[in-house]
Nucleic acid binder design. Structure first.
Lengths: 125, 125
DNA sequence: TCATCATATGAATGATTGCTCATATGTTTC
DNA sequence: GAAACATATGAGCAATCATTCATATGATGA
C-alpha cells in the first residue's frame, strides 16, 4: 500500500506569498485523475523500473518460458527469478500455466509490449 | 550509475542439474538487447515509478506550467517539486523555458503521453 | 547595489526494495 | 510412501530513493 498525501482544497487566492496561479491551478486540479489511480499507475511503472524484470519481460517476448530457462538465460538465481516473477504476476504483466512440475510463463497482454517499445524509442532517439 | 551483472556465456549443456533448456536459452540470449540499453530502460521507467512525478507529468499534460503553479496545484513543497523536475529533466521527459524569473515546464515529447496512457489502460481494464 | 521573488541544490534521514540463504510446497516416478 | 525435481516463499541485509531543511543561484526593480 502506498502512502497517502493530502491534496489542498481549491480556494480563493489569499495573498500568502509568490505569484498568483489560481487559473492554472484550478484547471490542473480538475483534470488530475484521482490519487488512488495515480498511485496504482506509479506501482505499475515501478515493476518496469528494474533491469532484471525488464530482462524477464524481454525474454518472455521471445517465447513462453519456464522458470528454469529464464534462470539459465539471464544468469540469475532461481530464487531471484521466482521473486521477480511474483511481482510480475501480481502486476498482471505475465500469466502462467502448469505442465507437470514445470510452470511456463508468458506475457499477459499487449500493453507490456507497447510500454517497453515506447520506452525503448524514448531512450534511443 | 547502475550496477553491472555478468551474463553467462552460451555454452554446451554440461548436465549440472535440472532440465535442459539449451534451445530456448540460446534464442533468448541472442534476442535480448544489450545490458546497457536494458539498464537505461529501467532507469527511464524508474522516473515514472513515483506518484509525485506522475502527478507532475499529468499536470503538464494539461498545460505548460511554472514551478510555483505545480507546487500549488499538487500541494507539494517547492523544494520537492524542484528535485523531481530535475529528475524529469535529466530523463528528457520535460523541457523548460525561462521568462524573467519564472521558468515554464512542459512535456518533452509524445512518448510520455503514450507511456502514461498505456499504463492507465493496463490498470483500468 | 540592495531587497525580493522564483527556482535550484546539498546533506541528512526514514522508508522501500532486490538480492541471498534457507526452507517450504507441489509434482512425478519408483 | 520416499526420493528427486521444479518452483515458491520468508527473513534479513545492503543499497537506493523521496522528502525535508537550510541555503545558494539567478533575475528584476528601485
Amino acid at each position: 500500500m502506498t502512502t497517502e498525501r493530502e491534496v489542498p482544497e481549491l480556494e480563493q487566492w489569499e495573498g500568502e506569498r509568490g505569484h498568483d496561479h489560481a487559473a492554472a491551478v484550478a484547471k490542473v486540479q480538475e483534470a488530475l485523475p484521482d490519487d488512488g489511480v495515480l498511485y496504482d499507475l506509479a506501482d505499475l511503472f515501478r515493476i518496469f523500473a528494474d533491469s532484471s524484470r525488464i530482462k524477464i519481460l524481454y525474454a518472455l517476448y521471445e517465447s513462453e518460458l519456464c522458470v528454469g530457462a529464464i534462470t539459465q538465460a539471464l544468469g540469475m538465481t532461481q530464487s531471484a527469478v521466482s521473486h521477480q516473477l511474483r511481482a510480475l504476476r501480481q502486476a498482471k504483466l505475465v500469466k502462467y500455466r502448469r505442465e507437470g512440475k514445470t510452470i511456463f510463463y508468458s506475457l499477459a497482454d499487449d500493453h507490456v509490449v507497447t510500454i517497453l517499445a515506447q520506452g525503448m524509442e524514448h531512450i534511443t532517439e
